[in-house]
Computed example of a mutant assay.
Amino acid sequence: MTPTGAQAQMSTEEFEELARNAPELVRLEFIQGRVQVKPVPDGNHQTIVMWLLKQCMQQRPDLELYAEQGLKVEAYRNGRARADAVLVPEEHLVGRGDWINPTGVLMAVEVTSHDRDTDARDRVEKPEGYAQAGIPVYLLIDRESLSVVVHAEPEGGRYRAITTRPFGAVIALPEPVKITLETEKLKEYAN
């Protein structure tokens, strides 16, 4: 983690240009003033996002779940995070660019990858960045710990409410999402 007050590697504009021209096999983020390479998702990772998409469509057809959406997490050192998915009101992304303002994003979703940076990225840096951006719900589907973690009630740059349930449990996502996830199927996708 870059210490507070440390010099950023580049400007946000330089990062956006770099990310725009990066090869398709590389997904870049700009977190805490550092360029980070996010692993390309494996088949199980993508299957989990699709499973969640189906849950959202069935229960909340008024909302849309978009995979691989870039978010401006400005309070987080002018950062840019590429969420595995974001849940937004219908047509919310019309006319927006690659990196959207998080206003109106109801939920950010991350699915852990099997790499050495997942702990810092998905369990520490992302919840801080999403809370600071005011995103009401952060859903972490943790394939390593076989659990679903719901972060809610962002206040003062942190989520005040954190609920963890093992794969197989039923978990209700709070307002404004209001979706209930039956997570038994995630046991099959953990690897």
Results as ranks from 00 to 15, higher is better:
H114Q: 11
V177P: 05
K178R: 14
Y159H: 09
L25Y: 14
A22W: 08
V124K: 12
V26A: 15
K38C: 01
Y159L: 12
V148L: 13
Q58A: 13
M50K: 15
L87R: 02
Q36N: 14
S11W: 00
L106T: 03
A131I: 01
E17V: 14
E175Q: 12
D119T: 11
A172W: 07
P174L: 08
Q7P: 05
S11H: 00
R121H: 09
P3R: 12
L63H: 10
L28G: 12
L186Y: 01
H92P: 09
E16P: 08
R82C: 08
T4F: 11
P23G: 10
Q55C: 14
R60H: 09
H45G: 00
A169D: 10
G104R: 01
G168E: 11
G104S: 12
P154W: 01
Q9L: 11
Y159E: 06
I162W: 00
L87S: 00
G33S: 04
G168W: 15
A161T: 13
N44A: 12
E16Q: 15
E14H: 09
N78Q: 04
V150R: 04
M107D: 06
M1Y: 07
E17P: 05
G156H: 04
K72R: 15
A81W: 04
V94R: 11
Y66V: 13
L139W: 06
T183H: 00
G33W: 06
T47Q: 15
A172G: 10
G97I: 02
E155G: 07
F167M: 11
E91K: 00
N101I: 12
R160G: 10
D119Q: 11
T163R: 12
V150I: 08
K38H: 09
A75H: 09
P136H: 09
L146R: 00
L28I: 14
E155V: 07
I135Q: 00
V94N: 07
A22T: 06
P136Y: 03
R60G: 00
A8H: 04
T2M: 07
G97Q: 09
H92D: 08
P89G: 07
M50P: 05
R20Q: 11
A190T: 12
H114E: 13
P102R: 01
Y76D: 08
Y130Q: 02
E155L: 12
R34T: 04
T4H: 06
T12D: 08
L173G: 04
D98S: 10
K54W: 12
I135D: 01
K72P: 01
L186T: 05
K54L: 14
Q36C: 14
P61T: 06
N21Q: 07
